[in-house]
């Protein structure tokens, strides 16, 4: 059986990060963009946990707890904002965010 080394975890985490980044840049729905952002944060979590394991100290895992908490707070605020905007605009698409321009 093949043993999973640090590089395997890092490759997966890098792929997750890239998928998230592509999602943020390419998708047009605010909720999907938001999900992609969470994916990027979780990519960082995976990298931190793996490196923490291979570095032999727990600092990385401590940060993961904070990231999970912060992500929850961000989601609470973010979804509230998206709902409030949807009520005003009847849309959750980035193309409709055009009231602020020169």
């Amino acid at each position: 059986m093949m043993h999973a080394g640090l590089e395997h975890y890092l490759v997966v985490s890098f792929l997750l990060f890239s998928i998230g980044l592509i999602g943020v840049v390419a998708r047009r729905n605010l909720l999907v963009i938001y999900m992609s952002l969470e994916l990027m944060l979780n990519a960082a979590n995976l990298a931190l946990v793996a490196m923490s394991r291979f570095n032999g100290n727990l600092d990385g895992q401590v940060l993961v707890f904070f990231i999970i908490t912060v992500a929850a707070a961000e989601v609470a605020v973010g979804l509230a904002l998206i709902v409030a905007l949807f009520r005003k605009r009847q849309s959750a698409h980035v193309e409709d965010l055009t009231s602020l321009k020169l």
């Binding site: 990060f17 952002l37 990519a43 960082a44 931190l48 490196m51 990385g60 940060l63 961000e74 904002l81």
Partner: peptide
Amino acid sequence: EAGVKYLILGALSSAILVYGIALIY
């Protein structure tokens, strides 16, 4: 709209920041 724009770009930048921290760590 200002809030949503700040939220999306702010969350993006903090995701990149966290990934950077992971790499440095």
